[in-house]
Simulated assay, not measured.
Amino acid sequence: MANVSIARRYARALLDVASEAGRTDAVAEQLSAFASIFAKNPELSDVINNPAYTRTQVSQVVEGVMKAVPGGVDPVLASTLRLLVDRNRLPYLGDIARLFGDMADARAGRVRGRVTSAAPLPADALARLQQTLQQVTQRNVILETRVDPSLLGGVSAQVGSILYDGSLRTQLEEMRRELKQR
């Protein structure tokens, strides 16, 4: 619980500063990329999580990663990353990135969703599905697509915490349950 409250504090502060600068989406993208880099690289993850490394060593690693980013890091994010290093809060980077993205989406009236289908969906079908979900949720829906052949057919869509399941697999399972009850 303390981890989330600490991360929420930093995410909210970063969101306020990024919003004032009009750079919320750019900061969200870069922050997510940074969190992913540190999470996927065991050596970098060790540097930020292992107390054996000094603050100076951690700072040098973070500065090196920031310099390696093509086009440079947004100044708002660079300041935040330095602050996280100074306060030994860099291990919360993944939680901060997740919460920042959620808060930025909520502030912009967006909601993220995942569409899973048995085969890749044509662009026009995906656009119609997105439009329908936007009408149902009364929010701008950003969809991520996934292919899962085990669905057999149809589509399932999760928007926020709500699952709309129109997959053939689920329909067949429902029919099986009904037949067993008879």
Rank of each mutant, 00 (worst) to 15 (best):
A104D: 05
T116V: 15
D74I: 09
A2K: 15
L44G: 14
A119R: 14
L172F: 12
A125L: 12
D148H: 05
Q171N: 05
A13I: 10
D105Q: 07
A123K: 15
V61K: 05
A118Q: 09
L163V: 14
G153L: 06
Q138H: 13
A157C: 13
L14Q: 01
L90S: 02
V136R: 14
Q60E: 11
L152V: 11
M1C: 07
L93W: 11
D105W: 07
P42W: 06
R146A: 12
L93S: 10
G154A: 03
Q131I: 00
E144P: 05
I96H: 02
A28R: 11
R23E: 14
Q134G: 14
R9V: 04
D148T: 05
R128I: 03
F34I: 11
R82E: 15
D86E: 15
G109F: 13
Q181Y: 04
A118F: 11
Q130R: 15
A11Y: 00
S167R: 08
P42G: 08
D25M: 10
G101R: 15
V115R: 10
G94V: 13
T145A: 04
M103G: 01
A119D: 09
Y164D: 01
V27M: 02
L172N: 10
E43G: 04
L129Y: 02
Q30I: 09
A118T: 12
S117A: 15
P120S: 11
V136N: 03
V17C: 04
N50G: 04
K67P: 00
L126I: 06
G101S: 15
Y10P: 04
S5V: 09
Y10G: 03
Q138L: 09
D86V: 07
P75M: 05
V111S: 00
G109A: 08
V111D: 00
S117N: 08
S19L: 04
N3P: 05
T80D: 02
L152Y: 04
D25P: 02
I37G: 01
E174V: 10
Y53W: 12
Q30D: 09
N49T: 13
R112K: 13
Y164R: 03
D74S: 08
K67C: 01
L163A: 02
A106E: 15
T116G: 02
D102G: 05
R128Y: 02
S150E: 12
N88E: 12
I142S: 04
S167F: 03
G94L: 08
I96F: 06
A33M: 12
Q130H: 04
S32V: 05
L99G: 00
D95H: 14
G160T: 11
Q138R: 15
G166M: 07
A78W: 09
R169N: 03
A97H: 06
A35E: 00
Q138T: 12
V69W: 11
